[in-house]
Design a binder for these strands. Structure first.
Lengths: 199, 199, 199, 199
DNA sequence: GGCTAAGCGAGACGGTACGTCTAGTCTTGGA
DNA sequence: TCCAAGACTAGACGTACCGTCTCGCTTAGCC
């Protein structure tokens, strides 16, 4: 059996790492996803291809890392602390906070999710590092609403988040219609109200 | 100026077309999306690459055509005709009908949507030929429900369909959780009821 | 079994072939053998690497072809026709003719033979296309001398050529001493006379 | 200016040296020259690449050292002492002694000479450590024969050795014909006799 | 019924990128 | 202080496909 030698993270060169992430992000944003290549990243970062392959399994993983680290430089929302007694407003605010972080890089996000469709490893990383965390504040606010009796106690907060976010990702990935702040508000309203008229 | 010569559809060889679509579908389903290539399709179909490029702009378009033509061989649902006075049951039935058609090819559908993220032309074709039509019966049933006063007359049927389908596509493309018939039912229920408790 | 598809020589692009051979020769002579690479040849020739791999098995084979075709542009010696009744003079003339063709590219010739040491296919090509032909005129003159009784009738002309050329290739490949026209004459003399004094 | 730090031979680790030479020889003989690499030697010897680069300039130099040290483990010929009054027999015996030492490693020897064609430093080492010494006994016996009047006193023993060895190296490096003990005898005979018939 | 203009199978072409390999230099940590 | 270990930049390897092109061949109308 081929013992795939695992490199020693302690000896990883932080300068190279930084250069690679910056190059990956720059390429992905400036030239578009289809122009991103391991070779291109290595050239722009002044780095050997080997170094990229040593630490990342695919270009998708590199760009994901680059994207996540860029997001983490931004000041992060803390929606729990800002929970008011207005459920709708709080949810809208959470979505808007996220929106402000990603609205200038929607194509990149969409490309990452697209790439993940034929890269299960990337799909897992994407879910764990980007998508699941971003939905957590919504779920937290839902749970608070349950405590307050605004939402049925037997409802599943995860499903609630899916109800809200499903519409958003559908627009991002599939529907050729605008995805903007007004739409986010509408998603919250429709999700809270549901389709059926009150009896 | 380069006069892109348009080929004459009348002279198109139906045998080649069939062989190409079959080869594309076989490759995409048997080997996985990443193994699909124009060269591979041409080789398997016993066809010149030129013939593929003459009629399709990209491998995504070929596979989409192949997929659509496979779906159309199946007997199609006619949910309008089958509308009962049970909104929930009708919606579930529509979703289940679609489910029965695509459940054995979800990865292929996901791969197509993934590919569309960096191929706007494919995205448009996908929307028009596959995704929009499949949501139409849901919208139709919603409109009927509006006529019957079960759903608010000012609601947007398109948005209603997004509310339902968003959850489904989210699972298909992003969430690492099961997408099955039970889930489809739950999507209908949650969408009809909404999150907020009845006052 | 893997049927290594054989390309069709009729469809070979002569412009590409020419460009490749010229680039290979230029690189080998200007930059030295160690700087020759398939990639470099392709780049300099403005040609895809695939095109080189399609027609040659190794860079050695390319350079050999390039070298041979350069030699063939030169007017070739016809030592048979020029056979006089002076065996020594004729042999010297044959060696000098060859010398005039290759003296400005001895390092390249040496590099080719060097490369052939770990490339049996190249060794065979080299022998057939370059080395064996170049020794043929010597063998022919030896045979003529046998007919004239100057050389023992049971002597092997091939071995005779080895006796003469062995000294030359030894200098070319191994001995750190001058290889020049005076040396060629000495090789002929020593070979004709032999070591042992006449009784 | 870059002061190439010279390592201190006194501190050289003899275990490492031994392991490197053994690994180099094993690789070169078992896997063939093309599989020899500094990395491979280091890995097989359990040694850092640095240690090899510290003491040798190239992989050719390592393998040459390994080869020479293997030869020196064998009992060496002393042909001078064994000089009889039969010149031919003595020369054949010298060649056969050498033959017995190297006949099982001819490809390795050929590969070393091949490598030397684009490595002048290796060429020099090879000449000094392996090739020149091995021809010395022949030259010595030639000189003795000159003293005894069997060979012309103005003949150059070095050239005489070239006459004999040239044929052998030509077969080793260039000619696709057998190189065996019978051939060695023939080389001696042909060299002593020369081509021209006695008048 | 011959002519000509497609479409077609085939595959060579100039390219880009892949993922692997090795070279030779540099850094770290243990002996 | 030396060394094993191995990460680093650099770049060639040989392969896979891309999208364009050129070849003969068949086949459809149009004269």
């Amino acid at each position: 059996m081929q013992a795939t030698r695992t490199p020693d993270p302690a000896r990883r060169n932080p300068d190279s790492t930084k250069a690679i992430l910056e190059a990956a992000l720059a390429l992905a944003r400036d030239e578009g996803w289809s122009k991103v290549s391991i070779e291109g990243i290595a050239a722009r970062a002044g780095v050997g291809k080997r170094t990229i392959y040593r630490w990342w399994p695919s270009k998708g993983a590199v760009v994901l890392d680059a994207y996540v680290s860029r997001l983490q430089e931004a000041p992060y929302m803390s929606p729990e602390a800002a929970a008011t007694d207005d459920l709708r407003a709080d949810l809208v605010r959470v979505l808007n906070d996220t929106w402000n972080m990603v609205s200038d890089s929607l194509p990149l996000l969409a490309a990452l999710i697209g790439e993940a469709q034929h890269d299960p490893d990337l799909a897992a990383r994407l879910w764990e590092r980007l998508i699941a965390p971003s939905s957590e504040p919504v779920q937290a606010r839902i749970r608070l609403a349950q405590d307050r009796g605004e939402i049925a106690p037997d409802a599943d907060p995860f499903r609630a988040a899916e109800l809200i976010y499903g519409q958003i990702y559908l627009r991002l990935l599939v529907t050729p219609k605008a995805l903007d702040e007004g739409f986010l508000e509408d998603c919250v309203d429709l999700s809270l109200r549901g389709l059926r008229v009150r009896p």
